[in-house]
Amino acid sequence: MAAGEKPPSLDELDARVKAAQQVQERRVGKPGGGPRGGTEKIGVGLRIGIELVAGVVVGTVLGLLLDRWLGTKPWLLIVGFLLGSCAGFLNVYRVAQAEEARRKTAAASEAKDQSRSP
């Protein structure tokens, strides 16, 4: 910056940062939302498997403990396993549903961005 020249105001700087961000977004996608693209998909994949198993395990263990407590071997174990499997599927369904909803909003906002800029 030459001597005597006024330093740029914060508004100007803000506008320049925004412009630079837009160029960057067009190139590599929106920042700030955490990992994206392939990374995000790995994350979802890793989640789903464990959600399914966790439901089954919790249901089965709960059944086992209740059996031991109430002395109803082996009935609550069986019921617990079945309910746990349902809970596991419910978990997976919820993850998939949330993922689908997020993808839709992302696609919608992207379409809006494109229609706005010529």
Binding site: L46, R47, I50, E51, V53, A54, G55, V57, V58, G59, L62, G80, L83, G84, C86, A87, G88, L90, N91
Partner: peptide
């Protein structure tokens, strides 16, 4: 039927949360 399933699903949260980090 639904309430036990939802309760198990709710209780499975800390399990899936911790196993995921630990296993990975």
């Amino acid at each position: 039927i639904l309430i036990p399933i939802e309760v198990i699903s709710y209780l499975s949260r800390p399990v899936s949360l911790s196993v995921r980090l630990f296993a990975n």
